[in-house]
C-alpha cells in the first residue's frame, strides 16, 4: 500500500468500464423502486446484481463475481420471483405499489449512501491497490477468510443459522406456543 496512487485524469480503460457499470447498477436500482410492474422490478434487480458482478470482475475479484451471479442472480431473485408468482403474479401496472412513507425511505437511503461514501472516501482516499490478476481467485480469498477473518465469518454463520431456525419456527404451524 505504499504505491503512489496515479491521478484520476486521464481515466484508464478499467476505470471507464467500472464507472459505466456503476451507472448501470445505480440506474437499474432506481428502476427497481420506481417501476409500476412488480415482476419487472425483480428483473431490474437482476440487472443491478449483474452490474455489481461486472464491477467485481473489473476489480479482478473473479471468485466474488461468479458467486454473486450464482447466489444473488441465480438463487435469491429466483426465490423472490417464486414468492411473487406463488402469491400474486400481476401482468401490467399495479396501482398499489406506492408506499406512504416513500419520502422517509428515500431520505434514509440517501443518508446511508452519504455515510458510506464519506467513510470510503475519507478512509481510502490515498490507498491504492494494483489490480494484479489472480488476487481474487479462490485460494487467496479462502486463506484470508479462514485465517485472518475467521471469527467474523463464524459469527455471521451463527447469525444465519439463528435466522434459519427462526424461519422454520415461524412457518411451522404444528409447533405449539407456550400456553
Amino acid at each position: 500500500m505504499t504505491l503512489q496512487a496515479p491521478g484520476f485524469w486521464p481515466p484508464t480503460g478499467p476505470e471507464i468500464v467500472f464507472l459505466l457499470l456503476g451507472v448501470v447498477a445505480l440506474g437499474s436500482a432506481l428502476l427497481v423502486v420506481t417501476t409500476r410492474q412488480l415482476v419487472h422490478a425483480a428483473l431490474w434487480l437482476v440487472v443491478c446484481f449483474g452490474a455489481l458482478a461486472g464491477g467485481y470482475l473489473v476489480l479482478t475479484a473473479e471468485f466474488v463475481a461468479w458467486v454473486q451471479v450464482l447466489i444473488y442472480v441465480g438463487a435469491v431473485v429466483v426465490l423472490l420471483l417464486f414468492g411473487i408468482m406463488l402469491t400474486r403474479a400481476p401482468i401490467g401496472r399495479s396501482a398499489d405499489l406506492d408506499s406512504g412513507n416513500r419520502w422517509a425511505a428515500a431520505l434514509v437511503a440517501l443518508a446511508t449512501a452519504a455515510v458510506l461514501v464519506t467513510v470510503v472516501v475519507s478512509g481510502f482516499r490515498t490507498a491504492y491497490a494494483p489490480l494484479d490478476p489472480g488476487q481474487g481467485a479462490a485460494k487467496p480469498l479462502g486463506s484470508s477468510i479462514f485465517r485472518t477473518w475467521v471469527l467474523p465469518f463464524e459469527a455471521l454463520s451463527v447469525l444465519l443459522l439463528a435466522a434459519l431456525v427462526g424461519a422454520i419456527v415461524l412457518s411451522r404451524t404444528d409447533i405449539q406456543g407456550r400456553k
Binding site: V39, L43, V67, V69, L70, V73, G74, L81, A89, A138
Partner: peptide, 25 residues
Amino acid sequence: DLPVAVLLVLATASIGVYGIVLAGW
C-alpha cells in the same frame, strides 16, 4: 479457462432458470 471455471458453469446454469420462469410467467 479461469481459476474459478466450475463456478462459471454453475452461474450460467442458474441464469438459464430465468428463461423457464419468465416463459411461465
